[in-house]
Design a protein around this nucleic acid. Structure first.
Length: 473
DNA sequence: TGAAATGTTGGGGCG
DNA sequence: ACGCCCCAACATTTC
């Protein structure tokens, strides 16, 4: 009797537990687990540097969990898979679905091709609800979050419960055709990773540790605590979710089993926002590049690469903004409220196109995710489906006083102004001269003068928005 | 998942 | 005692 061998193609599901496709592959027979780095098909959305760094460590960790049996390749999957089929007696392949438009196109072609010779099956390993199943009564997709989540998701079928890791699997390794992980060259050339790595424990085990930590110190204060960037009340699970080191189903059912309160509900609704982003991307493949509201196509954006550079590097002279941008650069992550603040500042006060922000986040965030990133930038820019109205402009000074009341977030990331009293920490330009001197701060030298006047730029943004409305109606 | 401008109310100082 | 003004404090509207 011939033995059954199945491929499990790891993609954005770099875990063993609650992995539906892996589970099926394992019940089929022996498993050849593999990963393919595919840069050629991604167009403008090849992975950014932070994502690559994360991927490197995640693959390393996955390989360990598989007893060293992960086979890794670099190139076009359709050719690589074909070549593997010539050397192994494979009769099935399993994978969990991805939802970026370019991957949907690619996978469809691969599926049609492979179906001719072997059994091909794809599963849902990344989403609580498939985007095509959540529809309004009239059959179209939701465009507003609240009904999407309440009516669409919560009244749809309950998310699948999580399943265990497959046990007693016999793994095979492709020693001839695969490459060494280091040959993927995923680590940055500069020593940027030395700063990022200590902040994270990358991989499936790290994901579960992080989740347990969040349950212990964040979940019970999540609803309001999630707004405080200096506190440990947010989950920081986004990169793990992006790479599938932990599944949303595992998070959903685990927190639901703990209790039923407003904090749990709020955490689940944040998972709902993730679903909403994926739904928007699925139904609007242009979401990463095209304004959902066409009237924004004629918006009078500014164009100033110096100013953009100052934003990217955290040298705008606005502490709350600079702290966020430096957190991003130093850790590959930014607290959600701060993402809204720096986003609003870029798009409204600096009036630079949201594409610039989207690009920088794509390059530097360890949780860079096409659906979440583009949906969120469209949201903050005001041009998305269920977007924050354009006139909702964050004041980084007010936001700082409100959400970082003792200044510990700003002081952590901008040590050069740490000695300022709380009163002036968020607006150093208002500090009386003698206090600046006592603190050893020289604006324009030790810390920048603000690159824009908050009030003037706010008024200018509103005027620009006003001109837009007249142009269309 | 804003902020600023404008409107309203009510208590206290003061002639 | 009374009316008037001032201005927090809060509510509503507007961008």
């Amino acid at each position: 009797m011939t033995e059954n061998i199945a491929i499990h193609w790891f993609r954005q599901d770099l875990r063993l537990s609650d992995n539906p496709a892996l589970y099926k592959a394992a019940s089929h027979g022996k498993v050849l687990p593999l990963f393919i780095l595919d840069d050629g098909n991604a167009g403008d959305y090849t992975m950014g540097s932070a994502s690559r760094l994360w991927l490197h460590h995640s693959l390393k960790s996955l390989n360990n969990s598989l007893g060293g049996n992960l086979s890794v390749y670099h190139g076009n999957p359709i050719y690589i898979l074909d070549e593997i089929l010539t050397r192994f007696d494979i009769n099935a392949i399993y994978w969990n679905r991805c939802y970026e438009p370019w991957r949907i196109d690619r996978d469809k072609k691969i599926k049609d091709h492979l179906k001719k010779s072997i059994n091909v099956e794809s599963c849902n390993g990344s989403l609580l609800w498939e985007p095509w199943t959540i529809k309004k009564d009239d059959g179209t997709h939701y465009k507003v979050f609240s009904p999407f989540y309440r009516k669409g998701c919560l009244q749809a079928e309950r998310p699948r419960n999580f399943i265990p890791s497959p046990s007693n699997v016999k793994y095979l390794r492709d020693n001839d055709g695969s490459v060494n992980l280091n040959q993927l060259k995923l680590l940055p050339i500069l020593c940027w990773n030395k700063k990022l790595e200590p902040n994270w424990s990358i991989g499936e085990i790290g994901a579960h540790t992080r989740f347990q930590q969040f349950i212990k110190e964040g979940l019970s204060q999540y609803k309001d605590g999630r707004n405080l960037p200096a506190k440990p009340y947010v989950s920081r699970l986004s990169p793990y979710l992006h790479f599938g080191e932990i599944s949303p189903n595992q998070l959903w059912h685990t927190v639901k089993s703990i209790s039923d309160d407003k904090h749990i509900d709020h955490f689940c609704s944040e998972l709902g926002w993730r679903e909403f982003s994926y739904s928007q991307l699925y139904h609007n493949p242009d979401l990463p590049t095209k304004n959902l509201q066409p009237k924004f196509n004629s918006f009078p954006w500014a164009n100033d690469s110096e100013v953009l550079r100052a934003w990217e590097k955290g040298l705008t002279g606005i502490p709350m903004v600079d702290a966020g941008m430096r957190e991003l650069w130093q850790t590959g992550y930014m607290h959600n409220r701060i993402r809204m603040i720096v986003g609003s500042f870029l798009v409204k006060n600096l009036r630079l196109h949201w594409h610039h922000g989207e690009r920088w986040f794509w390059e530097t965030l360890v949780d860079a995710d096409l659906a979440n990133n583009s949906a969120s930038w469209q949201w903050i820019a005001g041009c998305g489906a269920d977007a924050a109205p354009y006139f909702r402009i964050f004041n980084p000074v007010t936001q700082g006083k409100k959400f970082d009341p003792n200044g510990s977030y700003v002081r952590r990331f901008i040590p050069e102004i740490a000695s300022l009293p709380d009163k002036y920490l968020f607006s150093p330009w208002e500090t009386p001269n003698h206090i600046l001197e006592e603190s050893g701060i020289e604006l324009g030298n030790t810390y920048p003068n603000p690159i824009v006047d908050l009030k003037q730029s706010r008024d200018a943004a509103l005027a620009a928005f006003q001109s837009l409305k007249q142009g269309v109606s």
